[in-house]
Simulated assay, not measured.
Amino acid sequence: MLWARCSQSRYGNELTGRPRWQDVHPSRQRECMEELRCQVCVQQPSRTELGYLFLATQQDDRSTDSWEGHLTAQPPLCLEHAKAAVEECGHLVRAGAVALRVRLPRLYGVIGTLHRTGPDGRPEPVEFDSESARTPLPYRKRRLTPLFLASQLVRELRGVTVVDLDDLISAAGALRARP
């Protein structure tokens, strides 16, 4: 799998700048998804016996038990940055966020751009409608798709429990306040 590359703002080994919620950096997204790290601070995400904390965009046609098997390109989060995400991330603010605890976030595939060999022998991107362009390529089909430039890693969420983010944050605050 070929991976898209782009520059990062770094000071030494530290990333700099504020989170740009809409613009996911390909290598940071990949690192956080592969290692199950918080997508903002690249530290350990929130994890309990119910699993890792993921956020998803609220969808009207989903009931609380229908998140099993959900595909996501959004890495897990620590509690601090989950709170920031629901307050600052545009699509989560507009549509609403659902907090999910996930026991088994399985690697599924990638999102990217399919290429074909052009008339001059060079790769050229294949144009799709916007929905098809966001459809992940499962890893099991990667050998059938030799010219694919990946930009986001995708996980399939298994063992999903819908949780209340405010309750998680309150409980964490109560634990810290104990003497």
Rank of each mutant, 00 (worst) to 15 (best):
S63K: 09
L15Y: 14
L157P: 11
C6D: 08
P138T: 00
V154W: 02
R134N: 12
D129A: 03
V40L: 04
D23N: 12
Y11A: 03
T48V: 11
T64P: 14
R101K: 08
Q29D: 07
P136I: 01
V93M: 07
L2K: 08
F128R: 09
A56N: 15
V86G: 13
K83Y: 14
S9C: 10
T113V: 08
C6G: 04
A4E: 08
R178Y: 05
V110Q: 06
A174M: 03
K141H: 01
E156T: 03
S46N: 08
G109I: 00
P105Y: 03
A95L: 10
L55F: 15
G118E: 04
L53M: 06
A84Y: 10
D61E: 06
V40I: 12
S7W: 02
V154S: 01
H70L: 14
A177I: 05
H25K: 04
Q44N: 15
V160P: 04
G17Q: 04
C41D: 14
G90D: 10
P26C: 12
E124H: 00
G90W: 06
P76T: 06
L92S: 08
W67A: 06
W67M: 08
Q8W: 07
R103P: 07
P146Y: 00
I169M: 01
A73D: 15
H91I: 05
L36N: 10
E127N: 02
V162D: 07
R143G: 03
V160S: 03
R30F: 10
V126L: 13
T64V: 12
R155H: 13
D61R: 04
Q44H: 15
L153T: 01
V24I: 15
S27L: 13
T117R: 09
L2C: 01
F128H: 10
T117M: 06
V102A: 08
R143Q: 04
A150L: 05
R155T: 01
F54T: 07
Q58C: 13
P105M: 04
F54Q: 10
R134T: 07
Q58P: 05
L2A: 05
E14K: 05
Y108K: 02
R176Y: 09
P19G: 08
A99N: 05
G173W: 02
T48P: 15
E87G: 14
I111P: 00
R37H: 08
T117P: 05
E127P: 03
T135A: 05
V110I: 00
Q44C: 14
E49P: 11
P119Q: 04
E88K: 11
C38A: 09
C89G: 02
P76C: 11
G96S: 11
E156R: 12
R176N: 11
R143K: 04
Y52I: 09
A4W: 00
C41K: 04
L114G: 00
E49M: 12
R37K: 15
R10F: 11
V126F: 07
S9H: 11
S151G: 03
A95D: 12
A172Y: 00
